[in-house]
Amino acid sequence: MSSDFTFIWVAVGALFDPITIAYALAALGLALHFGFTGLLNFGQAGFMTIGGYAFAIGAVKLNVGFFPSLLMAIAGAVLFALLLGIPTLRLRADYLSIVTIGAAEIVRLSVRTPEARPLTGGSDGLNGTGASFFALNPIPDTFSINLGPIHYTNDMVWVRLVGWITVIVAALIIWLLVRSPWGRVIKGIREDEDAVRALGKNAFSYKMQVLIIGGVLAGIGVIFAIMPSSLQPDNYGTQTTFFIWAIMLLGGAATIFGPIVGSMIFWATIAITEGFVSLGVKTGVLPITPVQSGQIRYMLVGLALMLLVIFRPQGIFGKKAEARFNG
């Protein structure tokens, strides 16, 4: 029976998993968008898709190596931000939400279309994107970490190490930005864009910078998720964006620490919940099928989004006084 509780270890592993890294970076970017600037980006999954495919195509199809592929991912995210921002950032805030949620789906449908198969692998996605990254691994392959049922090879340690260093560097950059006069301007835009324009600031330019920076974080983050496994287009649907929103709101939208810890809590909670549910299904305590148990996480995330916004808009780490959303 004890082996059924290995999901506790899975949850511990989830705290530092590459997926957690990817979502922490994407949520950090979203916090810059929404929490600090008030931009309603519902296409963060689109930035992940663009970044992921740009990187994967560079790494697998063009074989240009890790760093050029990384640059391609960044360039892809920047272009996507420009494409979304130019028509919408001058308009009322909710137009951005409609356009971004749509654009993210368009990107997903486009990369998984059979016509694009030679480049993107269609609905199968792309594998082996991490080869050039793991080739850079200085940790000898005799090295491994064993912690209970958790077993990390040198490559698994490498991706986590570089991933978390990236998260820390990104957090530092965002921290420097939001406490600078630049950060004051974007917070001003969140509160009232017209007032900021009346003070001689080019609000459009700031919003575009924010959209680009937050999008690039998502585009870089996804790389850590796909390198050790594979890039599957259907992993980046609208539900992915909603996960990122839940993570950001959970930790605190206008915080830097919040999205990162939010991602860890989120994925550990998912692992524990699904562990208990599958245990319940196996032992017959829960009268549901295994297929149904797969839907539970989405239902919980949806419910969490609603309840967080209604009852704890500041999240875990946000200040209560700052919790008031703008109408």
Partner: peptide
């Protein structure tokens, strides 16, 4: 609006 998104997923 975010509540409506949560409701949609739920």
């Amino acid at each position: 609006m975010i509540v409506s998104i949560g409701l949609s997923l739920l």
